[in-house]
Amino acid sequence: GVQDLIIELAVMVLSAAIGLSTLWSMAGSNGQDPKAIGYKFKPAGENVLWGLGGFIASLPLVAAMSLLSNWAFRRIHTPEQPIIPMVSSGNAAVVALAFIVACVAAPIIEETFFRGTLYNAFRGKTGTWPSVLATSALFAAVHPLPGNFLPIFTLACILAILRERTGSLLPGMVCHSVFNTSSLIIALL
């Protein structure tokens, strides 16, 4: 439990460090601002509100997509998100680490790369909607399939729309974190 989560956290942080150093060195040597991926957090209060609004807006859509997906894939087994059984084991250290991984590290790192670098790369080549759909499909595809595809794709579309609408990654980080936190709390109960 604890050891698995420490490894998972180390992998996330290390790969993020490699990606960010690539971004900073390449952008820097081309005279471009790496923070333009959406590292613009002010006005913080407004951005946090956008994130909370996005979370509330996502709830009925993600719930509807979960129901549809459960029905569509009722005959096909979808593996469980590996962090869920760890959390239900109840060990305090495991629960604390799981919250750090799912509610702090994952939102910051995944928003940076999926809605920051990847979304903006597509956005520079195609229009808004192809970028929203393509990056959300990839984001959903890296989660346990097939049952989670539709709900996570829907959440990712909302995260990408928040990035597009506000120009900041903070609303997506807040929405992503609140979503993961509520999922973990439900798993704990």
Binding site: S15, T117, A121
Partner: peptide
């Protein structure tokens, strides 16, 4: 920022994540 730089940054993150997940 140019799409090429952004895509390379994403790929270096994504590929490292996959390699590290498999190796560690």
């Amino acid at each position: 920022i140019s799409p090429t730089i952004l895509l390379r940054a994403f790929l270096s993150y994504f590929v490292s994540f996959i390699i590290l997940s498999v190796v560690i």
